[in-house]
Nucleic acid binder design. Structure first.
Length: 603
RNA sequence: GGGGUGGUAGUUCAGCCUGGUUAGAACGCUGGCCUGUCAAGCCAGAGGUCGCGGGUUCAAGUCCCGUCCACCCCGCCA
């Protein structure tokens, strides 16, 4: 080692020692006579003082220093003189009096500012990612990410889990997300796919008798990107045998408790709150509710029968719903400001936003262009349901159920932010009792909401066996309603409005699996081609099993307070799935394509 | 595929609505002064393909059309 310690590791107890440090010039303040340099390494920052009184040679050389030069300095660690301490630095009481300075490497002037994090365009940050990653907050993010995975590994190891790797070159499964494909040179015309998740393999490992498996593993999905979605992302994937839902939840709750305690020193209460899918949609309009604030959605469909407002009545006639949300204290808004709210609702897919200002409940004071269409007792009941007080604003959306929930769930978040209702902290919630099946309007068939291996809840198993002849299935038929009501042994874990994981108990009985494929319209033949190896494995003594996968990137993003998972990934991709730094994706040699028997057909 | 925001000095932005002399500011950079600063200070200086292409006009950073890139969202994705 050519250094004794890290810059941020120096303690007051070491004052008087002579030390050697290495690092980058973070900041320099050249007073001519005295030169101050903030020296930075991974561990932190320390002030180095160059004075001609200590070393004329070092002081002279220090004039040449520029930002991001890499240097080595030796000198005494001293307490700073009274009144010159810097309370903003952890090492602000200390400084190194440099006797020796060596420039290990110079740096060209920087294309971006390393100290000022927030204001740099993302393009530049990604183009010069190596510089961006020098920024202390990015270093902190990746250090926290490391600690999270370390704690998870330790915890799962202590709980008897084995980390087992699964293939990255695997079989394409057209269900679900689009696959990234890799051509096979040795098998012309055939392709590998990069895994969307290790789902099938981890179930196979259960059949093999490993009982508790986990993996922290890259997954790949060729879909469009979002702030919380990258084409390659990391899952904490686990699977257990001889368990039910409760066991999986317990393991994850213990894991989160431990992770938050050891990494952030935050106490997380367990067990986590639970909501059924139905209740979550009803109260929050979404299956990933942020429970850190109220403003719940309230149903007004029944009350709307008593009004004469045509939009509401039309909605009732077509089987739609009317729900409302409260804008705390927003009766003050001008017409213009309400128009802006309406624009937001429109952008979320609503056809309109009805509003009523609550001026005085006791005095029957309600204000709105539509207030004359509502009897006073209806208005009072509406404000009672919303727990509205004088000075609040009631916002209504009338539409088909899905749109109503969709729009209001977004309005809720928007209002929560605007009214500063979203407190810090971490609110976990399990969403359970998901529907097993989802109707695909376009293809006129049922699809798995989670995946085709998800077990129905025990009470609902006979429902799926009672259905025969799926070709006649039509919306509103009794079989349709029966199948729609089947609940899955599936669960999502939601943190602060983000879905950070999901899993299920799998089907281990061949007869149920066969019936599921029938309902999903997947023929035996098709099933064999797509999942044959798993189905075969299930014939040979498959234990009851289930598991879950956590989105590590999202979890760490929330823990560090970032708003995009790009900030917790060392080398993320842009919205067009490109890496600006390395120039990925790129063209390849004609020779490479030829070896792979591939011809491109450009649009 | 669709909607939105942005692209001007190394960086962050102003200028654009309402076209008109030499495109500004701050930070950074270069040089000078400066022995207790910590966003150091003071003085001087250099630095521009106004994303790219086309059009309108006597005249375009500014108006119009197209296009590329980045970000946010919908679709898509669990």
């Amino acid at each position: 080692m050519i250094r004794d310690k890290g810059c941020g590791e120096l303690k007051e107890s070491e004052v008087g020692k002579k030390i050697t440090l290495c690092g980058w010039i973070f900041r320099r303040r050249d007073h001519g006579g005295l030169i101050f340099v903030d020296l930075r390494d991974r561990s932190g920052i320390i002030q180095v003082v160059f004075s001609p009184d200590v070393s004329r040679k070092a002081h002279e050389l220090a004039h040449e220093l520029r930002n991001e030069y890499v240097i080595s300095v030796s000198g005494d660690l001293r307490k700073r003189p009274d009144g010159t301490e810097n309370p903003n630095l952890p090492t602000g009481n200390l400084e190194v009096y440099a006797e020796r300075l060596e420039v290990l490497n110079k740096s060209a002037p920087l294309p971006l500012n390393i100290e000022d994090a927030g204001d740099i365009s993302e393009t530049l940050r990604l183009r010069y990612r190596y510089l961006d990653l020098r920024r202390p907050d990015m270093q902190r993010n990746l250090i926290i990410r490391h600690r999270v995975t370390k704690v998870i590994r330790d915890y799962l190891d202590e709980n008897g889990f084995l980390e087992i790797e699964t293939p990255v070159l695997t079989k394409s499964t057209p269900e679900g997300a689009r696959d990234y494909l890799v051509p096979s040179r040795l098998n012309p015309g055939l392709f590998y796919a990069l895994p969307q998740s290790p789902q099938l393999f981890k179930q196979i490992l259960m059949v093999s008798g490993f009982e508790k498996y986990f993996q922290i593993v890259k997954c790949f999905r060729d879909e469009d990107l979002r702030a919380d979605r990258q084409p390659e992302f990391t899952q904490v994937d686990l699977e257990m045998s001889f368990v039910d839902k409760e066991n999986i939840m317990e393991i994850i709750e213990g894991m989160m408790k431990r992770v938050f305690k050891e990494v952030l020193d935050e106490d997380i209460n367990t067990p986590f709150e639970r909501l059924s899918f139905q209740e979550s949609i009803e109260r929050f309009g979404t299956d990933k509710p942020d429970l850190r604030f109220g403003l719940e959605l309230k149903d007004m469909t029944d009350l709307s029968e008593k009004c004469t407002f045509r939009v509401f009545l039309e909605t009732l006639k077509t089987g739609g719903r009317i729900k409302a949300i409260k804008g705390k204290g927003l009766a003050e808004l001008s017409r213009r400001e309400i128009d802006l709210l309406t624009d937001e609702a429109l952008s979320f897919g609503a056809k309109g936003l009805a509003w009523i200002k609550v001026k005085s409940i006791s005095g029957g004071g309600f204000e709105s262009p539509i207030v004359r269409f509502f009897p006073e007792d209806v208005l009072k009941e509406m404000s009672r349901r919303l727990e509205a007080e004088d000075g609040d604003l009631m916002l209504f959306v009338a539409d088909e159920e899905k749109v109503v929930n969709d729009v209001l769930s977004r309005m809720r978040i928007e209002l929560g932010k605007r009214l500063n209702l979203i407190k810090g902290g971490y609110r976990f919630v399990w969403i359970e009792d998901f529907p097993l099946l989802e109707w695909n309007k376009d293809e006129n068939r049922f699809e798995s909401m989670h995946h085709p291996f998800t077990s129905p809840i025990d009470e609902d198993i006979e429902k799926i066996f009672s259905v025969i002849g799926l070709t006649h299935l039509r919306p509103q038929s009794s079989d349709f309603r029966l199948l729609s009501s089947v609940r899955a042994k599936a669960y999502d874990i939601v943190l602060n409005g983000y879905e950070i994981g999901g899993g299920s108990i799998r089907i281990h009985r061949r007869d149920i699996q066969r019936k599921m494929f029938e309902i999903l319209g997947i023929s035996e033949e098709e099933a064999r081609i797509k999942f044959g190896f798993l189905l075969e494995a299930l014939e040979y003594g498959a234990p009851p099993h289930g598991g879950i996968a956590l989105g590590l990137d999202r979890l760490v993003m929330i823990m560090v307070g970032a708003t995009s998972i790009r900030d917790v990934i060392a080398f993320p991709k842009t919205q067009k799935a490109a890496c600006i730094m390395s120039g990925t994706p790129s063209q390849v040699d004609a020779k490479q394509l030829k070896e792979l028997h591939i011809k491109t057909d450009m649009p």
